[in-house]
Structures are given as structure tokens and as C-alpha cells.
């Protein structure tokens, strides 16, 4: 159970004159997947931090399963823009961190983390340091951390932007597959229209700063690439993004 609701949410950083986000409204039902798409600086990361309970909106309400979010919750897995792995912890320690912080005994935490790593094909690097891994592997470690904690809500901030094109498609497949198998609710931020349409059952399109909501597009073609449906939707979404961009001097 984890339904995420943003109700007219607006956020402004201290000592910033304009709002970074908002007002934004959407609902992601339990087990559903939302992709957030928008130009750089439009407030996507801020929006995820609001959903993670790391920031609190000045206006509106963020709630999970009907309860207003006031602090980070332990069943939310938040994957930062650069994965948020701690360089001074090994892959295994990083994967187990959520469980350790939740107060689980070390042995148990490490066993569950080991299972999660194995599932993502990372057994061989359990004792490696994050700096020794490729971008794709780091991303999988962050996913392993989410799996180990039994997260029911995954918030991923541009989880694939550091990967090259080939690794990127694999990683998209992996994200989709895990979401299908695990049944958690998912919010994925991305710059790429194709990626948003591959991963999100709905796509939230944000305009340039201050991040205002341009559209919430239903995407029946989730999980497919290069079909007629995705190509057409991609064209529509691009048009929405373009329409939202500031007018250039004509």
C-alpha cells in the first residue's frame, strides 16, 4: 500500500524569490508508475525531495496513503541523481544501509542485502568500493538498497542519465522488470521523452522554472519502445514540452 498524492503542492527555497515547484497536483496509485519529464532546472529533483519527505511544501499537501508526509519514511527508497552511494562503504554496506538505519541486526541486514545484490547480478562486487564500479553497476547497487528495504515506493531521480546508450536500454528494462515483479509504486524523473514513455503509466510534464505543471498524460504504451503508439505519444509530449518553452525572439 502506498498511494502518493500531491495536492496543489508548491515549494520555494529560503532566500529564493520564485517558487522552485508548483503548484503541482497528481496522484500515483498503489503499484502504479509515474514518469516526470521537464527541462533542466524546472524543479524535478525538488519535487522528488518533497515526495521523500526531505522538504516540506509551503503550500498544498503531500500525502501517502492519506496521511500527510512530515518526515522521511523507511519504506520509501529515494535514488538520488547520482545514486547517493556512500564512497566510504562497500557495495554490501551500501546495499544494507537502509536496514541498518532501520535498526536491523547486522547479520540479518547483510544477508538480505546479499540476496538483493545477487538478484541484480552484483554478487561478485559485494566487497568492492563504489568508485570501482561502472555507472550501470552503481545504479544497480542503489536499486539493491531499495529491494533490500522492501520499499513500497521508489523515487528515482534521473536514474539512467549517467549511462551510455546501450547500458541505458538494459537499465530501463531492469527498472521496468523490477517494478512489475515487486509491485511497488514508482516515480521516475527523466530528461528523455522515450524513457518517460517506457517507464511511466502516466507522464507528468513540467514547464520551465518555476516548475509549473503543463500536463498529465496517460500512457497506455508503457513498457514498449518504437511502436506506433509510443512514437505518436512522443510527438504529442514533445509538442507539450515545446509549447511550454519560453518564446524565442521571432
Amino acid at each position: 500500500m502506498s498511494e502518493l498524492v500531491f495536492d496543489a503542492v508548491a515549494y520555494r527555497y529560503d532566500n529564493a524569490d520564485a517558487a522552485a515547484v508548483g503548484p503541482v497536483s497528481f496522484t500515483v496509485g498503489t503499484g502504479r508508475s509515474l514518469a516526470i519529464l521537464g527541462p533542466s532546472g524546472c524543479g524535478k529533483s525538488t519535487l522528488l525531495q518533497l515526495a521523500a519527505g526531505l522538504l516540506h511544501p509551503q503550500d498544498g499537501r503531500v500525502s501517502i496513503d492519506g496521511a500527510e508526509l512530515s518526515t522521511p519514511r523507511k519504506n520509501t527508497a529515494y535514488m538520488l541523481q547520482n545514486y547517493g552511494l556512500l564512497p566510504w562503504k562497500t557495495v554490501l554496506e551500501n546495499a544494507a544501509l537502509g536496514l541498518i538505519i532501520a535498526g536491523q541486526p547486522r547479520i540479518q541486514a547483510y544477508r538480505r542485502a546479499t540476496e538483493a545484490l545477487a538478484r541484480l547480478g552484483l554478487d561478485a562486487v559485494a566487497q568492492a568500493w563504489p568508485r570501482e564500479l561502472s555507472g550501470g553497476m552503481r545504479q544497480r547497487v542503489a536499486l539493491a538498497r531499495a529491494l533490500a528495504t522492501d520499499a513500497d515506493l521508489l523515487l528515482a531521480d534521473e536514474p539512467l542519465s549517467a549511462l551510455d546508450a546501450l547500458a541505458r536500454e538494459d537499465a530501463q528494462d531492469l527498472l521496468l522488470q523490477l517494478w512489475c515483479e515487486e509491485g511497488y509504486t514508482q516515480v521516475v524523473v527523466t530528461h528523455s521523452v522515450e524513457e518517460a514513455l517506457f517507464l511511466g503509466q502516466r507522464v507528468l510534464v513540467l514547464g520551465p522554472a518555476p516548475g509549473r505543471q503543463v500536463a498529465l498524460v496517460d500512457n497506455p504504451a508503457v513498457g514498449t519502445r518504437d511502436t506506433t503508439a509510443t512514437v505518436e505519444l512522443a510527438r504529442d509530449v514533445r509538442a507539450l514540452l515545446k509549447g511550454a518553452a519560453p518564446e524565442c525572439a521571432a
Binding site: T76, Y78, L80, N82, L85, L86, I101, T149
Partner: peptide, 16 residues
């Protein structure tokens, strides 16, 4: 800040 956010999002206390 990303390291701090990473553990805070997991619900870490000040001591943690």
C-alpha cells in the same frame, strides 16, 4: 549534500 540526503531519506537520526 547528496550523502546527507541519502541517509536522511532512509530515516536516519542525527546520531546515525
Amino acid at each position: 549534500a547528496q550523502y546527507l540526503m541519502s541517509v536522511r531519506s532512509l530515516g536516519a537520526s542525527r546520531m546515525q
